[in-house]
Design a protein around this nucleic acid. Sequence first.
DNA 1: TATTGTTATACTCTATAACTATA
DNA 2: TATAGTTATAGAGTATAACAATA
Lengths: 173, 173
Amino acid sequence: MALAETIDLESRVEAGDHQALKLWLRLLACTTRVETVIRNRLRSEFGTTLPRFDLLAQLEREPGGLTMGELSARMMVTGGNVTGIVDQLEGEGLVVRNEHPSDRRAFRVQLTPAGRRQFRRMAAVHEGWIVDLFEGWSPTQKTQVHELLATLKTHLASFDATPAPRRKNKDSA
Amino acid sequence: MALAETIDLESRVEAGDHQALKLWLRLLACTTRVETVIRNRLRSEFGTTLPRFDLLAQLEREPGGLTMGELSARMMVTGGNVTGIVDQLEGEGLVVRNEHPSDRRAFRVQLTPAGRRQFRRMAAVHEGWIVDLFEGWSPTQKTQVHELLATLKTHLASFDATPAPRRKNKDSA
DNA sequence: TATTGTTATACTCTATAACTATA
DNA sequence: TATAGTTATAGAGTATAACAATA
């Protein structure tokens, strides 16, 4: 653990590896904790879930609506799941499947006025939770991490993180 | 208080809120991506999962073994899940339930020699993946974030993130 | 023939509750 | 009575594949 200073040349690479691993473990611990708090509160306060909240958030940003396929892509989940979530939200009167102007196979999924009201109410509370949770960092630190994460995000973009374990073709294997 | 001042104050708070939210979204995006890559590779390369890997990691650190309850606490999941994972790993010959010296209800779950070999092999590869994924940051940046996360982690410790949505008694928040 | 979305199914991960065998 | 672990069940959350309607 605290062996850092006395390393010789040979173990330096290994120490570097451990540095990355320890960083990852800590990052994961923090993220998981925040996520759990948010999930729990979303359920207890609003009787909803993270994917449902996420779907509403996607629609709120796109007043013209989104197709099921676009929702699927933005939420990074496969189509069948989107159908299920939209079914639920439509049942609650928060979203509607409107007809698509140019493709009769597709829909323009949009927020209803009630859906928009409900989402905004939740989003405001949600944002308050996030603010509290990240109060551990000063504004300067937040900015700093935000920028560091931008770098990391770019780097990570080159890794294959497709949801499916197996893609149709093209898998180099 | 002048109107202009009020507006200014309000928008400052709002700006601060958005800062935290944007930070969280980016943090979540990065973490999710890393996790997905790791999960996919763990499955495709070793036919295993993150919880199974995690359980082996817990045992590797504790040569004397751990009880089911201790595993449950360290992995932050409830008991029934641990039973399932240990069943699988025991079936594969990677861990054993040995008898507990002083409590006949409990076990000392331990790695088998094969389990230790297998875990070490996986852990080395796994660490390489992490190193690659975090190559986006310089060693200095890694250290920096690691320390910032320590601060955040401390702050987060005061929030209730119990797995269960509903606990026996009162919410302390 | 390709694509949009639905249906049906399955698997992972996790929680709860009732149960057993000790303590 | 309380605790360690198991069993059975439930419910998110996600994936795959076969299918219908339309392009």
